[in-house]
Design a binder for these strands. Sequence first.
DNA 1: GTCCGATGCTCATCCGTATCAGCCCGGGCC
DNA 2: GGCCCGGGCTGATACGGATGAGCATCGGAC
Lengths: 351, 351
Amino acid sequence: MAARAGKVTQRQIAELAGVSQAVVSLVLNGKANDATRIPDRTRERVEQVIAETGYTANAAARRLAGVGNKIVGVFTYEPAFPTGAQDFYTPLLAGIEAEAEQLGCDLLMFTSAPVRDGRRRLLHGNSRLRLADGCLLLGVRMDGDELGALQAEGFPFVAVGRRDVEGVPYVGLDYVAGAATLTGRVVEAGHAHLAYLHLEQAGESIVDRMRGVERGCASAPGIRLDTREVDEHAITADLLTGLRAGGVTAVVAETAAQAARVWEVATGLGWDVPRDLSVVVLADPPRAGSRLPDFTRLRPPRTRLGAESLRLLGRILDPADELPDRERRTLLDCEVVGGRTLAAPAHPAQR
Amino acid sequence: MAARAGKVTQRQIAELAGVSQAVVSLVLNGKANDATRIPDRTRERVEQVIAETGYTANAAARRLAGVGNKIVGVFTYEPAFPTGAQDFYTPLLAGIEAEAEQLGCDLLMFTSAPVRDGRRRLLHGNSRLRLADGCLLLGVRMDGDELGALQAEGFPFVAVGRRDVEGVPYVGLDYVAGAATLTGRVVEAGHAHLAYLHLEQAGESIVDRMRGVERGCASAPGIRLDTREVDEHAITADLLTGLRAGGVTAVVAETAAQAARVWEVATGLGWDVPRDLSVVVLADPPRAGSRLPDFTRLRPPRTRLGAESLRLLGRILDPADELPDRERRTLLDCEVVGGRTLAAPAHPAQR
DNA sequence: GTCCGATGCTCATCCGTATCAGCCCGGGCC
DNA sequence: GGCCCGGGCTGATACGGATGAGCATCGGAC
C-alpha cells in the first residue's frame, strides 16, 4: 500500500508476481487477444503487486513504444505571458485547460522555443514536440514552412485561428461576419463616414477584420471609409481632429488599446463620446473596471475558441472518429455587445 | 534546407553521412571523449546532413536513455483555471512561464490528474510525471503521502508555498511577518479590539496568516482579537453589527472576497469605511477597477513566487550547483500597501 | 619487420514498454 | 500411442538515442 522507494518497472513487478514482463504489460493494458489470454488468477495476482508497489508507467517509454500518451503540445508564436499578450492568451488558455481536464490529457507548453527572425520556432534541434500526441498552435503570425513540415510528416495539429494554408485544420473566429455586423450597426445608426484604425496587415485575422468592416460599410450605399494603420501610441489629438474635420463621425478600432486611446484623446479634447464621436471596437477590453467606458464592441469567444480547438485536436487524434472534412475547419460566431459608445451622429452627414 | 517529410532519426542521418548512429549522437551532443574523437571533416559532414534533413531529436527516446529533457512538470492540487482560482494562479503561472523561458525549459501541466478524496492525485497509474526532470507543486492542500513518495524515490520537486513536511524544498511567502506588520499598523492606528475573519484552518499558509495576526496584536499590550471562521457568504449585517456592538473597530480579512463583502455590508448599513470600521486584508483584490475601495492590504508577490520556485527547482536539477540547505527553503516578503481603508477609530477604545 | 600508440570510428547494450510469434503442456480424440 | 488443439504463458524485438568498450588502421620508432 505504502508508496515504495525507487521507481518501479514492469520487470520488477513481473519478478514479484512470478510472471514475465510481457504479462504485466498485458494486464496493465487489458489486452486479451485470443493469442494472449490471461486467466483471472494470474491477472489478480499481478494487479495486487501493481497496487502494492504503486507502479507508475514511464510515459517516455510508452511514447517511444508508439503509444499515444495523452499529451497535447501548446505552442505560441508570440511569447505568451509577458504582460502585453496576457489578456489575449489567458482566456484562450483557460478554455484549453478546461477542455484538457475534460479529455484527461496533459498540456505541454513550449515555453523554451528559441526566437529567430522575430518569431519563435517550433521545430528546432531538440524540440520536445514529439513527446506530444498532437499540438495546438496559437499566434497571429505562423510560419508557413513549419506548418508545411508538420503536415508533411503527418504530425497532428490544429491552428487556433483561421489559416490560409491548404489543409491546415483550424478553429477560428468569424471576424468577417462579426466586424460586418458591428460596422453595419454603425451605419444603421446613421453614420456615413467611418474611420477604421487597424494594425499592420499581417495574419489572417487582421485581414478578416478589415474585410468585415468593408462589408459592413457596403451594407448601405454611399458610405465612406477611411482606413488608417496606427498603433495606439500614434493616436493623437491631431489625428482625431483631422478625421473629424474630414467628416468622420464614427471610429471603428481594431484593438481595445486603440479604442481606449481614442476615447482618452477625444475626452481630452472635450468631446463627448458618443455624441461627438462614436467609437466601436472589434475586441474585448483588457479588464473590467478602470475609467474606460462600456464600449460597443465585438466579443470574440476566446475561451470557447480554446476549448473547441482542443476538442477538434482530440477528434483528429481519435482513430475511431471519422471526421468529415468540413468539420476540420470551423469558425465561431462573435457576439456584438451593446455598450454605450455608439449613437446617431449629432451632426448629420455633410455629403 | 527544406524541411523534409517523415520523421528523421539518427540512423537515417548516419546512413546519409556514411557513418554509424553512434557518431551522429556524439556529434549532436558535442561529446568528444579521448575515447571517442570525431575529426572536423566528419563532424562537418554529419552536421551538414543534420541541417539538410531538419532533424529533431525524439525527446521520449532521450528521456528514456536517461538524459534530462528540460521539461518541468506543474501540478496544481486544486484545478487551476476554473474561474474561482484563476486570479490566484494566473500571476503564479505568469512568473513560472517567464522563468521557464529564461531557463529554456518547457512546462508540462498535469491537467489530467484524477480527483480522489476531493483532491487531485499526482501519482496515478499512468501519470506523465516521469517525463519531466522535476516538478513544481502548487496548491493549498498537498498530500503528505505523495510528497513522501516523491522524496523517497528521489524525484526532484519544489513546493510553491511553505510546507511543514521534513526536507521538502519550497519557496513560500512570509505571511507571518506580513500579517504581523499589517496587523501592527492597525494596532498603531489606535485600534484595541480587532476581528480576524479567516477560512477553514487547512494548509500552512492559512496557519501562518493566523499566527501573524496574533503576533501583530501582541505588539501592544491589551489588544483584543476575535477570530471568526466564515467564508464570504456568511458575512451578514448581523455579524458586523454584532462585532461592532462588542467593541470591534477594525476587521482583518484573510481573503479579498471577505474584505469586499465586509465593505459591501458595512456600506449597506450606512457605515463609513474606515471612519466607523477599518478593514484591512491579507491578499490582493481580485482585479483592479469595480466599485471596491482601495483596501489597505498585504501584497503577496505571487509572480515572483512562481519565478523563484522554478529558479530553485532549476538549481536543484543542476548537478553543478552546490545548493546550501538553507536556500532550499526560503520565504519572500509581502509588501504592505497603504490603501484607504485603515484609519484611527472614530470612537476610542472602550476598555 | 615488429611493436606501440594514437586516431577514428563501430558495436553492443541499456533505458521501459508494447506486441506478436510461438513454445510448452495437458487433455481429448482416433 | 500419436496427434491435434487450445490455454497460458515467455522470448524476442522494436521504438530512438546515449555511451563505454573495443576494433581496425596508420605512422613512426626501434
